[in-house]
């Protein structure tokens, strides 16, 4: 889809400092799906599903690994954790850690 832009514009975008910083800090693949079930703390009444925004990334990585290997019982997170590699999980965890 970048083909929609002429080369000159792409060349300008490729120069350092002109690339929007937001894109580099954007959510890694898969990360935006989490909020479909996990609301930020205090956002919904009596959640049975825990908030995960702001959780230390290392904790989330550990939990996902335990879900993936069956070391921690789950309702649905075992089935979802198995869809992500360790690297993908770490990227998602780091992004979520910065959210409130």
């Amino acid at each position: 889809m970048t083909g929609r832009l002429p080369r000159t514009v792409l060349a300008v975008l490729a120069l350092g400092g002109l690339v929007p910083p937001a894109s580099a800090a954007g959510p890694p693949p898969g990360a935006t799906s989490c909020s479909g079930c996990h609301a930020p703390a205090g956002r919904v009444a009596a959640p049975s599903i825990p908030p995960i925004n702001g959780l230390p990334a290392a904790d989330l990585v550990r939990a996902m690994e335990a879900f993936r290997t069956g070391g921690q019982p789950a309702t649905v997170m075992d089935r979802i954790a198995r869809g992500f590699t360790a690297d993908e999980t770490r990227a998602i965890a780091q992004w979520l850690e910065a959210l409130r």
């Binding site: 889809m1 970048t2 929609r4 832009l5 514009v9 792409l10 975008l13 690339v19 929007p20 894109s23 954007g26 959510p27 890694p28 693949p29 898969g30 935006t32 799906s33 989490c34 909020s35 479909g36 079930c37 649905v76 979802i80 869809g83 992500f84 993908e88």
Partner: peptide, 25 residues
């Protein structure tokens, strides 16, 4: 929608959209 919104913004900026992962529950 959350994935597509980021793709739309990227495309408007002339950037390549990230290959997504999607979940359904």
């Amino acid at each position: 929608a959350k994935v597509a919104a980021l793709a739309v913004v990227a495309m408007l900026r002339g950037e390549a959209p990230t290959e997504p992962r999607l979940v359904n529950t």
